[in-house]
Amino acid sequence: MARRYGGNPAAALILIAADIAALILVLWILFFVFDANRANDLVDWVHHAANWLATWSRDLFTPDNAKWRTVLNYGLPAVVYLAVAQAFAGRVNR
């Protein structure tokens, strides 16, 4: 882990922010797929945060299965945030 965040502190902050965003999105996917109690405050907070993070992709895919729709529409931004952060952090480190 030290190697991933090593180097320029600005690059480390970019990677950490992307990791946190991806974690929130993946948590929402897991909560949705495994039918977590939506009345729970943590589940509600993660849902709202994931909705904000995935605003641009929430209705990009529209399969009939709600679980697949959630995996696709919230998983894509998680992957994009990680990939863009990795590229951007690499440029900052140079």
Score class of each variant (00 low, 15 high):
94 R>L: 12
66 A>T: 04
78 A>R: 01
72 L>D: 02
72 L>I: 10
58 R>S: 12
2 A>C: 06
3 R>Y: 08
7 G>E: 00
25 L>Q: 07
57 S>R: 04
65 N>R: 14
10 A>T: 15
4 R>Y: 14
87 A>Q: 12
84 V>A: 14
87 A>P: 04
49 A>Y: 00
36 A>K: 01
22 A>V: 06
38 R>H: 08
50 A>W: 06
21 A>N: 03
11 A>K: 10
77 P>S: 10
38 R>A: 02
40 N>L: 01
8 N>M: 10
26 V>P: 00
10 A>Y: 13
94 R>P: 02
76 L>Q: 02
16 I>F: 15
18 A>T: 09
41 D>P: 00
8 N>H: 11
92 V>L: 05
69 R>A: 06
86 Q>C: 04
26 V>A: 07
12 A>K: 10
41 D>F: 09
72 L>T: 06
8 N>W: 08
13 L>W: 13
23 L>T: 15
16 I>C: 12
70 T>K: 11
15 L>K: 14
85 A>R: 03
55 T>S: 15
58 R>M: 15
78 A>H: 03
28 W>Y: 15
49 A>R: 06
56 W>D: 02
70 T>F: 06
39 A>E: 08
35 D>H: 14
31 F>G: 10
31 F>V: 11
27 L>N: 10
21 A>Q: 02
68 W>N: 01
77 P>D: 02
90 G>V: 00
25 L>M: 03
65 N>C: 10
93 N>T: 09
2 A>M: 12
40 N>K: 01
28 W>P: 10
81 Y>A: 11
57 S>C: 05
86 Q>H: 06
18 A>C: 03
14 I>F: 07
73 N>M: 11
17 A>L: 09
52 W>S: 12
17 A>I: 11
53 L>N: 06
86 Q>S: 05
49 A>P: 03
94 R>T: 13
24 I>G: 01
47 H>C: 13
19 D>K: 11
17 A>V: 14
6 G>F: 02
77 P>N: 01
59 D>K: 07
13 L>Q: 12
18 A>F: 00
39 A>P: 03
31 F>W: 09
89 A>Q: 00
5 Y>K: 13
79 V>D: 03
15 L>S: 12
62 T>N: 14
35 D>A: 15
86 Q>I: 03
57 S>M: 07
47 H>I: 12
32 F>Q: 13
14 I>N: 07
57 S>N: 04
